[in-house]
Simulated scan of single mutants.
Amino acid sequence: MKNPELEKAKVFIIVEIIEYIPNSVLIKTIIKKTTGNVSAVSFDSGETLSEKTTPFDNFIQVIDGEAEVVIDGKSNLLNTGESIIIPAHTPNIIKANVRFKMISTIIKSGYENLTLD
């Protein structure tokens, strides 16, 4: 399988590396490592990522349009250039009331000593 990451040491314009696809959510890997991932994601208007909970913090940065990020039942509207951190172990939903693009950064290190009771 070909490496899904973008080519290293090559300049790119982040908002142009991913397109909008009608009626879809598209994810393009920028960096994928065992210690975390960086992805560009595009949402067409009306699309939603269903509620989920992950064991890691997720830094979301909107790079085009407007996103609705619901964290533990609280809705947050983010416009281009705005960011939010979805805390680990917290239910969340990402919605596209209008189409938008975002960068999602998940850092997995730092959880090695975490014990769940």
Rank of each mutant, 00 (worst) to 15 (best):
K10F: 01
P87E: 01
T80V: 13
M102L: 15
V38Q: 09
G36P: 05
L26I: 01
I13D: 00
I86M: 02
N58C: 14
G73N: 10
G81H: 06
K10H: 04
S83M: 13
Y20Q: 01
V69H: 01
K2C: 10
F100V: 04
P91H: 03
A9I: 10
N23W: 11
E82W: 03
F56Y: 14
I60D: 02
V70M: 13
E51K: 09
V25F: 00
F100Q: 00
D64Y: 08
I18C: 04
D117P: 15
N79I: 11
A88E: 06
I30A: 03
E16G: 06
L116V: 12
T54N: 14
P87A: 01
I84R: 08
T105Q: 15
T34F: 06
S50H: 11
K10W: 00
Y20T: 00
S39C: 15
K33I: 12
A96C: 03
N97L: 08
V11I: 15
I30N: 00
N113K: 12
L6S: 08
D117Y: 13
T48R: 09
G110R: 02
R99A: 04
I107R: 10
A9W: 12
S50Y: 07
K95G: 04
F43D: 01
N113F: 00
D72H: 04
I13P: 02
A40I: 09
I106Y: 04
A96E: 09
F56E: 01
K108S: 13
K101T: 09
F43L: 05
I31H: 05
T115A: 11
K2N: 14
Y111E: 12
P87K: 03
T35Q: 05
N97D: 12
T54P: 11
L114D: 11
E51A: 10
N37L: 14
I103E: 14
K10N: 03
N92H: 15
S45L: 02
E5N: 14
M1H: 12
I86Y: 01
I84L: 02
F43Y: 14
S83N: 12
I94N: 05
